[in-house]
Design a protein around this nucleic acid. Sequence first.
DNA 1: GTGGTCTAGACCACA
DNA 2: GTGGTCTAGACCACG
Lengths: 137, 137, 137, 137
Amino acid sequence: MMIRIDFKSGKPIYLQVVDQIRYAAASGQLRPGAALPSIRPLAQELRVNRNTIAKAYTELENQGVIETLAGKGSFVKDNHSPFTKQAKQKLLVGEIDQAVVTAHHLQVDRETFLRLVHERLDHYSGGTPERKRKESK
Amino acid sequence: MMIRIDFKSGKPIYLQVVDQIRYAAASGQLRPGAALPSIRPLAQELRVNRNTIAKAYTELENQGVIETLAGKGSFVKDNHSPFTKQAKQKLLVGEIDQAVVTAHHLQVDRETFLRLVHERLDHYSGGTPERKRKESK
Amino acid sequence: MMIRIDFKSGKPIYLQVVDQIRYAAASGQLRPGAALPSIRPLAQELRVNRNTIAKAYTELENQGVIETLAGKGSFVKDNHSPFTKQAKQKLLVGEIDQAVVTAHHLQVDRETFLRLVHERLDHYSGGTPERKRKESK
Amino acid sequence: MMIRIDFKSGKPIYLQVVDQIRYAAASGQLRPGAALPSIRPLAQELRVNRNTIAKAYTELENQGVIETLAGKGSFVKDNHSPFTKQAKQKLLVGEIDQAVVTAHHLQVDRETFLRLVHERLDHYSGGTPERKRKESK
DNA sequence: GTGGTCTAGACCACA
DNA sequence: GTGGTCTAGACCACG
């Protein structure tokens, strides 16, 4: 589970967790039946209170995304309808737009912006730049 | 001043206003001395409470971005140093990361992601396709 | 008109004015038909905005305490029932209690408190101590 | 902590709370380290909103009178210097003046006013008439 | 008309 | 349970 919390964003932490797990489940990154991380270790990893993770899991259960078996753990539910390819892109476009608009506001030029995008993609690929693609494009 | 609020983002409204105005001031979109919209009309336009805008303006004043004269209005301060190139990129990186992580969760591959980025860049360049812009590089 | 504004009390200024004029009118200090100070000079004397005094007078008119004749000025109305002697004392007792309780909280002893009371009485009598009374009592 | 709120006074509720707690702390009624009532119960007791008490406590913390530990509670600070004799009197004088001015407006004469003062002092001494207290002077 | 303050309700993070 | 924050409505002082 790759979860990224932005403590400065003002967006409630538990919602950041909910959104990211829901996206992962909807996209198939988390397959039905897959076990989610236990509350305690995940809280420790993200440096947040256990209650906050518990709240996220409760919310996910209410949304029908996961299922919690007392004493066993939490699991991705079978019947959760995945996003369509189109829906996925719509979600992404919103976040990409956010960054693009910020770039415009800050007068960061297109070239610099694209360089940053490639840099971050490489960063999350485990630091391995994918040289076969044209970064300078 | 065109300000866009995302009511579903979970990010506090007043912070969305602060960020957008600060960006506009730092990028030169709002020149020093320029008058900001009055609290009431802006609140009405954005469909939020007057106090929410007031809080944003107060925060901007505390940050030294604007100056507010009771009964007169609020104005962009002269001595507000724009973001450094480094600071700009730090801001941007946060937003890019957000999109990259979502792409990962949605299992959108690198190629598709980059295609979307270019598409959105073109969209905000007024529909100008990339090739025309490359000439200016 | 002896009106005293406490800018630090948090009590709205216009209400402080209303209360004090109402008391003066109810007690007979301001006789029916007597002219009130004009807004402008009173505002100047009390160092407040003219609108604030205007608001006080409007409120007094709504309460039926005074009457405003356009272009003439404001006057105490005839039909305003004065406080009974008992009512007067009840009002006073509330304010005296306030001071007495504060004295207790601050552990100001009875002797000191009484000395202060005499001092203030003298102050408002035009600085003339009334020596025929025992200040040290 | 016995706190009395006057809802009709026009003075902000949170300030009434601030003043009374500050007085109690400055006078030694509340010893350093002593725990203040928690926000919720106190708000319920005084029939005001939770935030009103929270604002009072925040103000007291800013003034250095109390210290508040999130999730633990609020406590009187050790290093809080009590009022000087002079400062005490200045506070008192304001309240005494208020009563003196009201007496003037109500045309309550000096003698009656002083009688009332003595009566209230006796009242708060637990009904002990003046003569018994004079022995301790 | 301008900005500022007080009170309130709902939600959040933490223990 | 604790304190903290965001949003909102009503009222105030001032020009």
